[in-house]
């Protein structure tokens, strides 16, 4: 199944306003330190990178590690400068890649 994501960005904001962005994506975030019931090591499978761009300009980036919970939930802030698109990208082990984007209207 494709990874589902919950993204919260205000639909409208005033120019210069600080806005809060919240993202959560479904992912097991398997640490690589656990073993299966039969004793086999379970390979690491995590999201390693997250980035957010605002009209093509990167405004936030995070590197994630095995200690992060399943379904990483990130909250960050930015200044609403102009109308346009916020794009989110998650990448990780086993070629994991997910992208989503949200429009914002700034007046």
């Amino acid at each position: 199944m494709t990874a589902q994501a919950l993204i919260h960005v205000p639909k409208k904001a005033k120019r210069g306003e600080v806005i809060e962005i919240r993202t959560m994506i479904s992912h097991v975030m398997e640490t690589g330190f656990r073993r299966s019931q039969s004793g086999e090591p379970i390979p690491r499978n995590i999201i390693a990178n997250f980035a957010c761009t605002y009209n093509g300009v990167e405004i936030f980036r995070a590197e994630l590690f095995p200690a992060m919970t399943a379904n990483p939930f990130l909250i960050f802030r930015t200044v609403a400068v102009e109308s346009g698109t916020l794009a989110f990208k998650w990448t990780g082990d086993n070629g994991f890649a997910a992208e989503q984007s949200v429009k914002i209207e700034v007046g």
């Binding site: 589902q4 994501a5 919950l6 919260h8 919240r22 959560m24 994506i25 479904s26 399943a70 379904n71 939930f73």
Partner: peptide, 8 residues
């Protein structure tokens, strides 16, 4: 609903 992982 934006923070409840069950919503995924």
């Amino acid at each position: 609903d934006m923070a409840n992982p069950g919503m995924l």
